[in-house]
Simulated scan of single mutants.
Amino acid sequence: MDTKASDCHTIGGFFNIDGKKLQRQYKDSLSDFQAWEHKEHAKDYLLFPENIGPKLSIDETALSKGELYTIITNKYSRGKQGSIVAIFSGTKVEPIIEKLLTISSKTRSKVKEITLDMANSMKKIVTKCFVNATQVTDRFHVQKLVNEALQDIRIQERWNASDIENNLILQAKKEGKQFIPIEFDNGDTAKQLLIRSRYLLTMDPSKWTTNQMQRADILFNQYPLIKQAYNVAQNLRIIYNTTTVKEVAYTKLAHWYNDVMKINLKQFGTVINTMQINYKTILNYFDNRSTNASAESFNAKIKAFRAQFRGVRDIDFFLYRLTKLYA
């Protein structure tokens, strides 16, 4: 019933019934929501210790109006029933640790590996509550950090190009002339080139279309710093994709680190510092090649579930339906 009731408006439309009334009827009478054992504290936390397994993921997601929730999921459940281990309102460390420690140490000791992002709060939670678990920094968060540094360089160049173009337009007006921007061989102006290159910089060159290849050639010729940064991002992706031995990964990442230091791009300063702080958990990825993909996939399901209801008005009832499906 819970799956079918997930969209009362649609069901109501089939039977010419008011969807809102059907939803209220389901909430108040047809479901066991009113007697739900977690109802009193659902907005603050939900715990399902029976779903704990050897491999977990911890991540955060927004349920309503940007309000963040911390969610722990079981990787082996693959986004199906038994996936949700815990849901906490907010990201504050102390209340989350307090509730997780109510689970027996024997149950928590079952956890052997947890994937997480590079947030300090996540590390504190895992370190305190799952002492036997190896922490693995999600590779996609590392690559995202590098890609953001690359995009920052592109955006900076875009603003510079916009300033130059605006000054030329003003100068042409003063002189009573018509401004005609310079176009490259593919028809892009400098500003258009930098705007339209956003997505190709996130892709492997083998996946570029003919137009993207031409645009990339022009972009890299005009902006060598962007080319350097792109090569750095690609080299990191190659290390992650092709390396299976932890010791080899350590050596390759050390060489990659030196290459980044040589080109001396200020946008990569944060990247370097973050990787220095997290290098041990970053290297743990190469033991089992575990990622937070299951957590990200589960977050996508939550967003789709949320969209189906056109937002979350009643958080308690939303969490009830969510846990009925996935806990």
Rank of each mutant, 00 (worst) to 15 (best):
L253H: 05
T243S: 09
T202M: 14
L68D: 03
K55F: 14
K21M: 02
K227L: 10
L325V: 10
Y257R: 15
T189D: 07
I169Y: 08
F286G: 02
K20T: 05
K266V: 12
R78N: 14
I155V: 15
A307I: 09
F184C: 01
T91Y: 06
G187A: 04
F305E: 07
I182S: 08
E37F: 11
R154L: 04
M213H: 11
K227S: 13
K106H: 05
N278A: 03
M203H: 14
I169K: 15
S104H: 10
I164A: 12
I315G: 01
E98Y: 10
R78F: 09
V85N: 04
T291A: 05
Q228M: 11
R313S: 10
F317C: 07
P181M: 06
Y250W: 02
L283V: 03
Q214I: 12
H141N: 06
F317D: 07
N16G: 04
I125Q: 07
D316N: 14
D163A: 09
L100M: 13
L219T: 06
I103H: 02
K112W: 03
S89T: 01
L319W: 11
V93Q: 14
D188A: 03
S206K: 14
E113M: 10
I125D: 07
F14H: 06
M261D: 05
A5T: 02
S297Y: 02
K174C: 05
N292H: 06
D185W: 00
G176E: 07
S104I: 01
G82C: 04
T137L: 15
N278F: 07
F220A: 06
Y230R: 03
V111R: 00
T61Y: 11
F14D: 00
Q222N: 13
N211Q: 14
K27R: 15
L68Q: 05
V131W: 01
E113G: 00
K80C: 03
L46D: 05
K123C: 04
T242D: 12
S109V: 01
E40W: 01
L219N: 09
T3E: 09
A86M: 09
F318N: 06
Y26C: 02
Y69D: 02
R313G: 08
F268S: 02
L225P: 00
E148R: 11
I155Y: 12
A216F: 12
I282D: 03
Q212G: 03
A254T: 13
T270R: 13
E148H: 09
I114S: 05
D316G: 00
T73V: 15
K4Y: 12
L145K: 13
R198I: 00
I153V: 14
K106M: 03
P49K: 07
S104W: 03
D259W: 08
S83M: 04
D163Q: 11
H9R: 14
S162L: 13
T244C: 04
Q276I: 05
K144Y: 09
I52F: 07
D163V: 02
Q222E: 14
N258P: 00
M118F: 15
N160C: 04
T137H: 13
